[in-house]
Amino acid sequence: MLKDLLSPEVQLKKYWKRQRPKLKDDLSAMMDDLFLQAADQCEENPFELILILSKQKGQAIATVYNRQKSALISMDAGQLLQSKFLEHLDMVPTALKNIILEKLEGQDIASNIVEALKGKRILIHYDKNEAFVFVEVTKQGKKIIDINTFLDNFEF
């Protein structure tokens, strides 16, 4: 039993759980910046914009749209999320970092994000309380998901 508690996988899961609040804060700050950048560039109200994260031509693309459904800005979200992941990895204790790198075995994180978007899109917008709402859109329909479910889509 003690051996199980000390296993690298268990330690990694515990560490991931402890890091989630920081990851959520970073993700929210990135999205705030993206919404504000689009609003400033296009003279729009950021609270009326919507971000759609989808797989396009083998990339995870984030596009911000206005009420008229015009694309304001697009970016490679896979590369951005990959750089954030690697930034967080630099803060991980060495023992866990080695376990993570071993588990990844040279995988391209951006490609994993693209694969997680297969068959779905994620719509993100502000609610009336200025908090982000995540909506998963699939062929079966739409459903609101929380940020933890959103982050779980991108486990490696």
Rank of each mutant, 00 (worst) to 15 (best):
D25Y: 15
D25V: 08
D25S: 14
L27Q: 08
L27F: 15
L27C: 14
L27T: 14
S28L: 04
S28T: 13
A29W: 06
A29L: 13
A29C: 10
A29Y: 10
A29N: 06
A29T: 09
M30R: 05
M30A: 15
M30E: 14
M30L: 14
M31K: 08
M31T: 07
M31R: 11
M31A: 10
M31D: 03
D32Y: 11
D32Q: 12
D33M: 11
D33N: 14
L34P: 00
L34T: 12
L34G: 06
L34Y: 11
L34M: 14
L34Q: 10
L34K: 08
F35P: 03
F35Y: 13
F35K: 03
L36H: 15
L36R: 15
L36G: 03
Q37C: 07
Q37T: 08
Q37A: 08
Q37I: 11
Q37P: 00
Q37F: 10
A38I: 07
A38C: 02
A38M: 01
A39H: 02
A39L: 03
D40E: 15
D40N: 11
D40W: 09
D40V: 14
D40H: 12
D40S: 13
Q41K: 08
Q41I: 10
Q41G: 07
Q41C: 07
C42M: 13
C42R: 14
C42L: 08
C42F: 15
E43T: 07
E43L: 08
E44G: 00
E44I: 02
E44V: 06
E44A: 06
E44F: 06
N45Y: 14
N45W: 10
P46N: 09
F47H: 12
F47R: 11
E48F: 05
E48T: 07
E48G: 13
E48H: 09
E48R: 11
E48C: 07
E48K: 07
E48S: 04
E48Q: 11
L49P: 00
L49M: 02
I50C: 04
I50G: 00
L51I: 00
L51W: 00
L51R: 01
L51F: 01
I52P: 02
I52M: 03
I52Q: 04
I52D: 05
I52Y: 02
I52L: 08
L53N: 12
L53R: 07
L53G: 02
L53F: 12
L53P: 04
S54D: 07
S54R: 11
S54T: 11
S54L: 11
S54P: 01
K55P: 02
K55Y: 07
K55W: 02
K55Q: 05
Q56N: 09
Q56T: 04
Q56E: 06
Q56H: 10
Q56S: 07
K57C: 02
K57A: 12
K57H: 11
K57S: 08
G58I: 06
G58M: 04
G58F: 05
Q59R: 11
Q59F: 13
Q59Y: 11
A60H: 09
A60N: 04
A60Q: 00
A60D: 03
A60M: 06
A60T: 05
I61W: 01
I61Q: 02
I61R: 03
I61H: 03
A62K: 05
A62Q: 05
A62P: 05
A62I: 05
T63M: 01
T63A: 05
